[in-house]
Amino acid sequence: MDIIVIVLLIIGLVFFTGGAVGILRFPDFYSRLHPAGKMDTMGSLFMLIALALFNLHHFTLATLLTSLKLIVIVVFVFLSSPTAIHGIVDAGVRAGLTPWTKGEKRR
């Protein structure tokens, strides 16, 4: 059980680190949003599942309820975070921001 929790936490951390580096390093608005969405969705997905599993060490009704609440948070983040990113990208396209192409300057 502990090994699964550790592995899931590390996968989540990899996503968070990659997302943080990506937000800083990518060249333009759209490509920066991509790691932002990944980080929120996949990173917190793996980490919260790991925490929900870790919480079940003492298996009682109370800990089961807490874990269920964590899973519910996962579901809602999984739904709302990509939608928010989609909405932001949509607004960018409608406002007329052109995507970055190779050879251009960072912006």
Binding site: S80, H86, G87, R94
Partner: peptide, 17 residues
Amino acid sequence: APYDLIIKTVCRLLIPF
């Protein structure tokens, strides 16, 4: 703005919760 299926569906799903 044109009808956006993704945003509207997700919002409809989430608002009751």
